[in-house]
Design a protein around this nucleic acid. Sequence first.
DNA 1: AATAATTTGTTGCTTTTGCAACAGAAAAAA
DNA 2: TTTTTTCTGTTGCAAAAGCAACAAATTATT
Lengths: 210, 210
Amino acid sequence: MNISFDIKQFVEALENSCHKVRKRTFSKNEVITNYIEKRNQLCILLDGSADLVRYDLNGNRTIIDHFSKYDVFGEVFYIVSTNNELFVEAKGKCEVLFYIYDDIKKKCKTNCKFHETLTELLPELILNKVTNLNMRIELLTKRSIRDKLVGYFNLISSMYLTKSFSLPFSLTDLADYLSVDRSAMMRELKLLKDDGFIEKTGNKITLLYK
Amino acid sequence: MNISFDIKQFVEALENSCHKVRKRTFSKNEVITNYIEKRNQLCILLDGSADLVRYDLNGNRTIIDHFSKYDVFGEVFYIVSTNNELFVEAKGKCEVLFYIYDDIKKKCKTNCKFHETLTELLPELILNKVTNLNMRIELLTKRSIRDKLVGYFNLISSMYLTKSFSLPFSLTDLADYLSVDRSAMMRELKLLKDDGFIEKTGNKITLLYK
DNA sequence: AATAATTTGTTGCTTTTGCAACAGAAAAAA
DNA sequence: TTTTTTCTGTTGCAAAAGCAACAAATTATT
C-alpha cells in the first residue's frame, strides 16, 4: 500500500546520502532480506515490487504484505515473535535501500538529512503500517472466500478511485494473500462473474455492483 | 495484550492530572466508545477488561481486539477506513481514561506531566500495537480451526510462561476472536482433547504437547 | 524462435466448517 | 433463593473450502 508522498523526501535526502545507508538491486525471486529477531533494519523499496512471505510447517505459503514503489519495511514494523521465518522476495527487478541501526532515534555523527527526515517521518510511517495491518485484519476476519474477494476488490477500487483495475497480484499470489486455497478462490471468482457481480479478463477486474 | 509496565507511568502522571483528560466508569456490556473517523481519541483502560468489536452486514460479530488492565486504545491505533462501525464494549466493570486531541504532539498550556509522558511513550505504544496486530494476522492466516486454536494457545502459553492457563475469553468470544463458528470450534476443541494434545476443564487449558 | 516454467482455469471428490437446534451448566439478576 | 439469562457442549445435516490432478494459456529463458 502506497505512502509514496512522504517517502519521496527520503529519496531526496539520499542525494547526499548517509554513509550508514546501503543501496542494492535484486532480480526476480531473489530474497531481499529476512526478518531477524534483535536486528533492526529499515528498508525502502525504491523500485519494483516485493512480498513479505511466510512458509508454515505444512508448506503453506502466506503473503503477509505486498510492497510496491516507496513502501517501507523491516523489523521495526514486524517485531518478530513467531517460529516461522519471514522473507521479503522480489517479484521482479527491485532497487532497495537498507539501513541497520542500534537505536532508531540515534543520529549518525554527521547528522545527515537522512536521519533528520527519518526521525521526523517515523511516527507517520508506523501509523501508516497500523492502518494497513488493520485493513488486513478486516479482510482476514471475513468468513467466506467470496466476502474476502469482494472486500479486497472494494479496497483496491477505493484506493485507485475506479471500478476497473488490474490486480497488483497474480491470482496465485492473491490466494496466498487472502489465505485461501487457489482453486477454491478461482471457483468463487467464476461464481462472482456468473452472478453478475464482476467482470474479469485475465487479472483485470471490473466491479458491476453498487 | 499487556504493556502495563510502561503505562503505569501514565497512571502516576495522572495524580496531578491534565484538565483535558476525563475519567469514567462503565458497567458490564456498556459501550465505552466507538471509533469515529476524524476524531482523535486515546483511551487507557485503568481497570477491567473490554473488547473492540465489529458487526458486519450478515450479523457476524468479530472481536478485533481484547483489552485488559492498562491497555491503550482509540482511533490512533485504528485509522478507520471501513464501513462497519467499531465499538469498545465493557466485559465487566471498567474504569477508563479519555483524552481527545487535535494534534497529539501539541501539549496543553500547563505542559503537564501527562502530556510529557504521552509524547515520550507514544512511539513505543504504537509499536506495541504493531506487534499485536502482526500476531493477530499470524493467527488469522492459519488455514484451519485447529491451527488457529493451537496458535492461540501457544501465544497465551508463551506470554504467561506456563503450559496451564485460563483463557481470558469465554469460549463464545474466543470463536469471535478467531473468526470461526463457535460450534465448529467446540468440536475441534473436543478433538484436540481426544487426540491428547490438550486438557480442558471449563476454560482452563493445559497443553500436553512439546 | 523454440523450449521450459509458471500461471490460469476447471473439475470430481473429500474434508472441514458453518448452521440450526437443543439440553444442561453456570452465572447474573431479581 | 428463585428466576432469568448467558454460556457450554453436542449433534445431524448442508454448504463451503481444500486437495489433487490436468490441460490450456501465458510468460520467461535459452
